[in-house]
């Protein structure tokens, strides 16, 4: 059972949240120029690491807001939580 620190509400039980999967997937800047393989990569291919993963969560049964979490997929340890639009930790986000 996870205890997730919502950036707005503080630590709450996992049952209040829904997970939205991999974070920082960028919309293709020029969709018309994309081939089938690039569309497949954008729509379906996912990072599925055994270790640190950046993902989106929504405090669905709380404030209702989305935010980013960096979590280890083996230990479930949450390394950091940061708001939507903030750069990932250790990167300038450009």
């Amino acid at each position: 059972m996870l205890l997730i620190p919502c950036p707005w509400c503080g630590e709450r039980d996992e049952s209040e949240f829904t997970c939205g999967g991999e974070a920082h997937i960028r919309r293709p800047p020029d969709p018309d120029a994309l081939g089938d393989a690039e569309w497949a990569d954008y729509l379906f291919m996912r990072a599925n690491p055994k270790g640190a993963l950046r993902e989106r969560w929504c405090h669905a049964h709380g404030c209702g807001r989305w935010f980013n979490v960096e979590r280890d997929t083996v230990t479930h340890e949450i390394a950091t939580v940061y708001r939507m639009g903030d750069p990932p930790p250790g990167e300038d986000g450009s």
Binding site: L2, C19, G21, E55, R71, T73, V74, T75
Partner: peptide, 13 residues
């Protein structure tokens, strides 16, 4: 469980 995991441990929820 609703999130990625390799832990082989499920959530009590």
């Amino acid at each position: 469980d609703g999130y990625n995991s390799y832990s082989q441990r499920g959530s009590f929820r």
